[in-house]
C-alpha cells in the first residue's frame, strides 16, 4: 500500500473553507472517505468528534465486571465452606465493596480496549510515520492501492496545495 501525503499549515487556514474544505474537495474528486486521513500533533477543533459507542461499551464493561465479581466471590466462598460460628457465609455488604471496584475496573478495561481497537493502536502494529509533522500543521494522507492511484492522488493533492 502506498500513502500519498500533503503537509499544510493550519495558520493561516488552508484554502477558503479550511482543512475540512480541503478534505471535502478530495472526496468530491472521488476519493473514498476511509482512504483520507488527517494527521496532526494536536486535536483539531475543525473536525468535531462523531458520536461514539465508547460510553456504551464502558457501561457494558461495568456490567461485566459487576457480575463477574459477584459470581466469582460467591463461587469461591461456596467452594470452600467455612464454619463462621453462626455468622452468614455470604454477606452482601462486604461483597459490595469488592464488586464496586471490579465494576469500575471492568468499565475502564472495556473503554481501553475500545480505544486500542478503534484507533488501531497496539504494541505490535506498524504504521507509516511522519516525523516531519510539526505543531500548527496537519498532514492530509490518501491511501492508495497501486502506483497509478498514487500518481492520481499526488496530482490532486498538488492541485489543492494552498501553499502553491
Amino acid at each position: 500500500m502506498i500513502e500519498v501525503s500533503l503537509r499544510v499549515a493550519l495558520d493561516p487556514p488552508p484554502g477558503g473553507a479550511g482543512l475540512p474544505g480541503l478534505v471535502a474537495r478530495l472526496r468530491r474528486e472521488g476519493i473514498a472517505e476511509r482512504r483520507i486521513q488527517v494527521l496532526s500533533r494536536e486535536p483539531l477543533p475543525e473536525f468535531p468528534p462523531p458520536p461514539s459507542s465508547m460510553s456504551k461499551l464502558g457501561i457494558l464493561g461495568a456490567l461485566f465486571g459487576f457480575s463477574a465479581a459477584i459470581g466469582a466471590i460467591v463461587a469461591m466462598t461456596l467452594g470452600y465452606r467455612l464454619h463462621t460460628g453462626g455468622m452468614p457465609l455470604i454477606s452482601p455488604l462486604p461483597i459490595g465493596v469488592i464488586t464496586y471496584e471490579m465494576t469500575l475496573l471492568g468499565s475502564i478495561i472495556a473503554m481501553l480496549l475500545h480505544l486500542l481497537l478503534g484507533a488501531r493502536l497496539g504494541p505490535g502494529r506498524r504504521a507509516v510515520e511522519h516525523p516531519e509533522l510539526n505543531f500548527g500543521e496537519a498532514i492530509v494522507c490518501v491511501a492508495c492501492s497501486d502506483a497509478e492511484q498514487a500518481w492520481q492522488a499526488r496530482q490532486l493533492l498538488a492541485a489543492l496545495d494552498p501553499a502553491r
Binding site: 470452600y80 467455612l82 464454619h83 463462621t84 460460628g85 453462626g86 455468622m87 462486604p94
Partner: peptide, 17 residues
C-alpha cells in the same frame, strides 16, 4: 461466638470451628 478477630483476617487463618 461473634468473634471480631475472625472476619478481618484476609486469608481466613482464624475461624470458629
Amino acid at each position: 461466638d461473634a468473634a471480631p478477630c475472625e472476619p478481618v483476617c484476609p486469608v481466613l487463618a482464624t475461624y470458629t470451628n
